[in-house]
Amino acid sequence: MSGVRILGIGSPSGDDQAGWLVVDALLAGGLDDIDIDKLDRPGASLIPMLENAAWVILIDAMQGSGRVGGIQRFDRKDWPDYRHGLSSHGFGVLAALSLARELGSLPPRLDLYGIEIGSTNPGEDAAAVIAAAAQQLARRIADELPRTGR
């Protein structure tokens, strides 16, 4: 079993790169013995990536909960119930986490971070405020990691 696994979720569309930018910032800071990856809208394939790890840190973009660049951490009790029917087009992180919970695939510790984003135009860079938020979140995550895992 791996110790810590960090997964940044995003797409190459403007601010939606927020999760990837956090991974970039963590890698630039130097990390050893950490399983770290960027994912592009993984859908249900996120579920096996939550397995065989003691602690998974997920970072994704979010919209509709405050100022652009704001960072939020969600505990499991904060996840809304997923009641909608699903299409694979709409099988997002919440759906994957809800399914993983039913299948008993969630790791012992799961930290879910969201960065509030604005524009998501394909091919554009993320806004400066998003890049700054990604740096800030990377520092916060790095500070929480065990020293042996840095």
Binding site: A44, S45, I47, R83, H84, G85, L86, L99, E102
Partner: peptide, 21 residues
């Protein structure tokens, strides 16, 4: 209503489906 509900009653089958996918 969804695969999430299905996973409660047929978890092994849903897991198998995800592996095949």
């Amino acid at each position: 209503n969804s695969v999430i509900e299905l996973a409660r009653i047929a978890p092994q089958e849903v897991r198998r489906g995800l592996r095949i996918q």
